[in-house]
Simulated assay, not measured.
Amino acid sequence: MKKFILFLCFFIISIGFAQEKVIKPQLVTTSTLVADEFFGSDSFGYVYYNKANVFYKQKNKELFQYKNLALGKIKGVDLQNPLKIVLFYEGFNSVVTLDNQLNETLLFNFSKNQNNPIVTSAVGLASQNRLWLFNSLPMQLGLYDFNKQQWQSLSQPFQSPIQYYQTDYNNFYWADSNNNIYSCDIFGKITALGTIPKFDAVQILSYEKVVFQIENKLFFHDLKDNSTIEIQLDKKMIEKFQVKDQFLLIFTESEISKYQILLP
């Protein structure tokens, strides 16, 4: 009986400690930024944002802009390579690539591809002059070759809609409508990574780690052991967040706050 009581006390104390475990980032800088949408930053310290549907790149007093109002609203931006930025205009089924001074280098209108019709709802930069494209017509993921202007399927038709996606050169990551996380490599190998709680926004950090937002709170989630830890912040409003190089950027309506963050 005594052993049972001791075990019960230890269990309750353990739960208490587990509930109190949090991640506390340290504020580094805060700067003013008035924008309609914040897209993120690169390794050189430039920030990218949209205002009145004009795409901007800014660092201190240095400012570049790209405007193509004929293509409508910018749906997505890929900043993996600052020398080849990818803008996705879903409404016009088009993709634009820009150089580091935001000069237009390529424009793809997939509606003009008569031989292999493409209606894309997800775009990202892949390796070897290719784009990740999710073709909504067959509901398949594939790669689009810049030079050949051809799309090649990598997957069978998806059974569940894509709720969120992100890409790197070698992987396409997505969360389906049931919050299941998957990855697909450039050879077409699909891996189930795990499931995360309900979210408003999410960033996949690796095969095992994600950060997600629900309302105005951030959480770190380990896909391997299915554990979640709150990231405590002093911000009451979070429009968008980005985790990059052990830093956390928080964008609100009028400013960007940069925190140093150490994740498990």
Rank of each mutant, 00 (worst) to 15 (best):
V243R: 07
D168T: 14
L125W: 00
P82Y: 09
D145I: 12
V123A: 02
D78I: 04
F146D: 00
N100W: 03
W151Q: 03
K236M: 04
I204Y: 04
N50W: 01
A35P: 05
S31Y: 11
C184I: 15
A175W: 06
S31M: 11
Q58F: 06
S127R: 06
F38G: 08
F110D: 09
I23Q: 14
N60L: 09
L137D: 01
S41R: 08
N178L: 14
L27Y: 03
Y66K: 11
E239M: 12
P161V: 13
Q149D: 06
F92Y: 15
P197W: 12
E208F: 03
F44S: 07
Y165L: 10
I214T: 15
Y164K: 15
L131F: 09
N113E: 06
F17L: 13
I74E: 02
P117Q: 01
V86D: 09
F172A: 10
K209P: 00
G76R: 07
S206N: 09
I196W: 05
E104Y: 06
S41V: 09
V210Y: 02
L193K: 12
I250C: 08
F219T: 04
Q203Y: 03
Y89A: 05
G16I: 15
C9L: 14
A52C: 05
V77P: 05
K224H: 01
D185K: 13
I214E: 15
K61P: 00
T97G: 14
L193P: 02
V28Y: 05
L106I: 14
Q242V: 00
L223H: 07
N129Q: 12
E20P: 03
I23G: 13
T32G: 11
K24Y: 08
I85N: 04
A201I: 02
S257P: 01
G40A: 10
Q114T: 13
I261E: 02
P25L: 11
F110N: 06
